[in-house]
Design a protein around this nucleic acid. Structure first.
Length: 540
RNA sequence: GCGCUUGUAGCUCAACCGGAUAGAGCGCUGGCCUCCGGAGCCAGAGGCUGUGGGUUCAACUCCCACCAAGCGCGCCA
């Protein structure tokens, strides 16, 4: 049972009794002594003239209901909240539910099979992925997994800016690096790319490329860099269904087409020798140029075409993960989507804030062009992919976080991810130990769960019971950190329990019940770690 | 100057979209291995939730002003 189920029933009971309540909440109890669920409904029904709500009448009414009687042991008032205590068998039924649903536990039809496109990373192929891209990659991957677990049909997409001025510059830069290497005087452009990765690419080029044109070098650089990006993502367990090429978008005529459509709807106009998009009609601060005086496109034009393309592909919702430097870009792309006849609320843009890197006290400034940056690869090598991921996913996307590299390296073993994985390994070990003692799956599944009477056991059970709710909340709010925090809490409860009680002990019946609990713990941990994309070690 | 985001324990972050005594990890102090792995557990210290107002039965959460940090404000991409 979820809080929502109880809420629906309470609404029914109260409306049948003739009460009208605006909005009230039913939520998991904040404290043990408050039972399992709490509601603030009494406050919402309160007569404004009274100082305290009259809960007695309401409780009496609720207690008459058959469904309530069937499911709840008792209902109490405390500080004008109404607390519900579930019957024991409902708490224990969580175990059977987890044992039977296994890796499906927490899965829900919440998303109603709606199609969602998650677009993320989308870094220009002008250099290796940085730590900032890493954070977006971790988020995008986890959000995709959570949504798909919650009943959405999810596609992940990477928008590839594989043409335009930055690409030209990349080609020119590579050629200059190559020539310099051959001892031929050449200058890397002021705003060109000068990182070591460029020198590496130049070094691997065959002899005799001196007279090749810039396009040749551009193609080589783009392909090489794209390959390293793909390798980085693969090693970070981040997967894309589609790489959407801007070059193809442009050559397909989509840009012209969408501008034509906007013209028909009179959302564009000519002024000062340029073509403007009337984004102010959709709440933007000012109108935006689509075609410049020199008749070339601005960045916005193909981007509108790209979003129009997404919409045409029939998605019910679009999610974009952007860096904070694009925050100001949100109103105009929402406007564009609205102009295409798509509800702007269905485009959810998550701004993933930057991580400021420190080495001790020293703040590291990052610039792709100058080649000064910490790459995702370096971070993975130094801290490990799991710890890196967890580090990102534990925080909300909007938090601007500081990260000290020295500290991260030094404290690797104290990273919460090890705490979590250790709990998992411990539980695994117990199951192995039990197998050696000839406990069978059937014996465990058939145990008398009501033997789990210890406070710590009930606490774990209640946490396990809340997993589906946590997943749903995470899917609704797109906040991945909820899952990470949930897992950490669950791991903590298990560690504490482990310390106090032996699972496999003399009393075989109790052992069986406890083994069932451990098994459930493992299942939920597995499901949670899977959603975050963090590995589940057998040993440490 | 304007806009967006963020200010919570010494540090890094939570707090279930207004709820009950603001919680974890790290660090600090003191304890705990004859027994499923001590990468763990237990106890303790540590807070005017940036500041000042307001709304409410109830504010970390909403509103206003201010302070501080980050990022934006091109016919760049």
């Amino acid at each position: 049972m979820k809080p929502h189920d109880l809420k629906v029933h309470l609404e029914k009971i109260l409306s049948e009794a003739g009460y009208k309540i605006d909005r009230f909440n039913v939520f998991p109890a904040a404290r043990k002594e408050f039972g399992d669920f709490s509601t603030n409904v009494a406050f919402k029904m309160q007569d404004p003239s009274q100082k305290k709500p009259d809960t007695k009448k309401i409780i009496h009414l609720i207690q008459q209901d058959e469904w309530i009687k069937e499911n709840f042991e008792k209902i109490e008032e405390k500080n004008s909240f109404i607390n519900f205590f579930l019957k024991d068998r409902l708490i224990y039924s969580t175990i059977s539910e987890i044992l039977s649903r296994k890796h499906e536990y927490g899965k829900s039809p919440y998303g109603q099979n709606k199609k969602i496109l998650v677009e993320f990373v989308s870094a220009n192929p002008t250099g290796p992925l940085t730590i900032a891209h890493g954070r977006q990659a971790a988020f995008g991957e986890a959000i995709s997994r959570i949504l798909s677990f919650s009943g959405y049909k999810v596609d992940r997409e990477y928008y590839l800016n594989d043409c335009g001025r930055q690409m030209e510059l990349l080609g020119i830069s590579l050629k200059a690096h190559y020539l310099q290497m051959k001892g031929i005087p050449a200058e890397i452009p002021e705003d060109g790319y000068r990182g070591n990765y460029m020198k590496d690419i130049a070094r691997k080029l065959p002899e005799g490329c001196e007279n090749r044109d810039n396009v040749f070098f551009e193609n080589v650089a783009r392909e090489k860099i794209l390959q390293t990006i793909k390798d980085d993502l693969k090693d970070f367990s981040v997967h894309f269904d589609r790489w959407f090429s801007e070059k193809h978008l442009r050559s397909s005529g989509s840009v012209e087409k969408i501008i034509e459509q906007l013209k028909k709807k009179e959302f564009v106009y000519r002024a000062d020798g340029a073509l403007w998009f009337r984004s102010t009609a959709f709440g933007d601060d000012k109108d935006r140029v689509l075609i410049k005086q020199d008749s070339s496109y601005t960045y916005l034009a193909p981007d509108i075409a790209y979003h129009a393309d997404k919409i045409q592909r029939g998605y019910d919702m679009l999610i974009n993960l952007w860096g904070p430097d694009h925050a100001g870009y949100v109103p105009r792309i929402k406007a564009a989507v609205a102009a295409c006849g798509f509800s702007p609320e269905k485009l959810r843009i998550i701004i993933v804030q930057l991580t400021t890197l420190y080495r001790g006290k020293e703040k590291l400034s990052m610039s792709t062009r100058k080649g000064q940056f910490i790459t995702l690869r370096q971070l993975m090598d130094e801290v490990g992919p799991d710890a890196t991921k967890f580090f990102f996913l534990f925080r909300r996307a909007e938090s601007h976080l500081d990260f000290d590299l020295e500290l991260a390296k030094k404290k690797t073993e104290e990273n919460p991810v090890y705490y979590i994985q250790y709990a998992f390994v411990r539980a695994k070990h117990i199951m192995m130990f039990a197998r050696e003692r000839h406990f069978t799956d059937d014996e465990v599944a058939g145990a008398d769960f009501s033997l789990l009477k210890e406070e710590d056991e009930i606490e774990i059970l209640k946490k396990l019971k809340n997993f589906p709710l946590t997943v749903e909340q995470s899917a609704r709010t797109l906040e991945v950190s909820k899952i990470a925090h949930y897992i950490l809490e669950l791991a903590g409860a298990f560690h504490s329990y482990y310390q106090k009680f032996r699972v496999v002990d003399e009393n075989r019946k109790v052992s069986c019940a406890r083994l069932a609990l451990v098994k459930c713990f493992l299942t939920v941990m597995h499901n949670g770690l899977e959603l975050l994309g963090i590995s589940k070690p057998e040993k440490m």
